[in-house]
């Protein structure tokens, strides 16, 4: 089935800062103007919950102004296994996110340090990983390996994208392989698992960084909490699979406050700079 390419109008931080649309906090439900949420780096002024940051805004928050160069911006998914209603889902995700797919990749500078970067987009089918997401991330790692560049990755994902069947599942192996080659060439990879990072993304590149960080209160886990509760009949606490839980169990290097990310990453990039 042919897919008509829609005209894209990416939304930037300035758009959110000028927006008087009413948004709700993901946790406490407090309603406020989108501009107010954006001013606070999408941290709820009422309950301090870290709300999700749109991928393009995250890139603006991290990268030196004007340095981001996007790779593979126009690649879109088709429906490789002919899954019912998938074309419509892609269409509405594109409309909702004003992005072509669930990840934005490219190269940039952070604190004058050159790097490659990928940021997943929660507004595109909850950042689920299909062939385009897997392929774009693989490509950015291959580029980084070829150019001896570090990779900074931000994950947010419900896991592998069901609608592409095994092609999605295989992206886990494919990206992990590209990360391995990047690693074996002694390049640095920092990944920040943001809320929520689950399923096949947790079970692949989100857990393969030299440094793995997260944000306060983020959900990071493999199996869904509700599924575990159903299977085991055990009620799990609110803190289960939180970033704090992962830190305590030894799977994260640090939980870093959002306002500190740029400085934190920039320092680490400086420490790993190749001469």
């Amino acid at each position: 089935m042919e897919q008509v390419k829609t005209e894209m109008k990416h939304k930037y931080l300035s758009d959110y800062l000028a927006s008087d649309a009413v948004v709700k906090c993901q946790k406490c439900g407090a309603e406020m103007a989108e501009s107010k949420m954006a001013e606070q780096m999408f941290i709820c002024p009422e309950c301090k919950k870290y709300n999700r940051v749109p991928a393009r805004v995250r890139i603006e928050m991290l990268c030196d102004k004007g340095t981001f160069e996007e790779f593979n911006a126009d690649v879109v998914s088709n429906n490789p296994i002919g899954f019912p209603d998938y074309d419509d889902k892609i269409k509405s995700a594109t409309k909702k996110s004003q992005e072509n797919e669930g990840v934005i990749c490219g190269k940039a500078k952070i604190g004058s340090n050159p790097c490659c970067i990928f940021v997943m987009e929660s507004n595109f089918m909850m950042g689920s990983m299909g062939s385009v997401v897997g392929d774009k991330i693989t490509a950015v790692f291959e580029y980084a390996t070829a150019h001896s560049l570090p990779v900074i990755g931000y994950t947010v994902s419900g896991g592998a994208r069901m609608q592409e069947g095994m092609i999605s599942l295989m992206q886990m192996a494919k990206v992990s392989g590209a990360v391995k080659r990047h690693n074996d060439a002694k390049n640095f990879y920092l990944v920040c698992a943001t809320d929520p990072t689950t399923g096949g993304v947790t079970a692949s590149f989100a857990m393969l960084g030299d440094v793995i960080i997260s944000e306060p209160g983020a959900l990071v886990g493999f199996a869904g909490k509700r599924v575990i509760e159903q299977v085991t009949g055990e009620k799990l606490p609110d803190t289960f699979q939180s970033a704090e839980f992962q830190l305590k169990n030894g799977f994260l290097d640090a939980i870093v406050e959002r306002s500190e990310h740029r400085e934190y990453i920039s320092t680490l990039l400086k420490m790993h700079r190749k001469v």
Partner: peptide, 16 residues
């Protein structure tokens, strides 16, 4: 594995 679901540009990865 690399060829499964291949769709992005190689090399310079310029936006096509």
């Amino acid at each position: 594995y690399r060829k499964i679901g291949r769709c992005a540009e190689e090399g310079a990865c310029r936006a096509s």
